[in-house]
């Protein structure tokens, strides 16, 4: 990590995944870039709190809200899948790729 360039624009793989999801969904017509910018602008200005950085954590929050509003992904289903991914991770030996199929509960 000492080479100054080329630098990844993403600090972690999940940031890249969130970015790619947003771009792909915009291209699939789920929202326009203006709708996205407005929604992101709301996320980074939470009521009663100071303005936040428009980082990928805010992208994730914004994406979840838009998907819930459009009836694509509700929070309960996402919570269940998140737990399934955690179980799959715990069941995967270090160094091996984590796959949802490794969830011992097989809920997904």
């Amino acid at each position: 990590m000492t080479a100054p360039e080329p630098q990844s624009p993403f600090a972690a793989p999940w940031e890249a995944q969130v970015f790619a999801l947003v771009v792909a969904l915009q291209e699939a017509g789920l929202f326009t870039w203006s709708e996205w910018a407005d929604a992101l602008g709301r996320t980074i200005r939470p009521e009663g709190e100071g303005e936040q950085a428009a980082d990928y954590g805010c992208w994730l929050q914004t994406l979840e809200r838009l998907l819930a509003e459009r009836g694509v992904a509700d929070a309960a289903r996402l919570d269940a899948l998140t737990a399934a991914w955690q179980r799959a991770a715990h069941a995967t030996p270090h160094g091996q790729p984590i796959l949802l199929a490794n969830d011992p509960a097989g809920a997904a």
């Binding site: 999801l21 996402l78 715990h90 984590i98």
Partner: peptide
């Protein structure tokens, strides 16, 4: 002795697998 996913990593994976 399995692997760990940070909460945000698991959340993004969940979102992606659902989509």
């Amino acid at each position: 002795h399995g692997s760990d996913l940070a909460p945000v990593e698991a959340r993004v994976r969940a979102l992606e697998s659902l989509l």
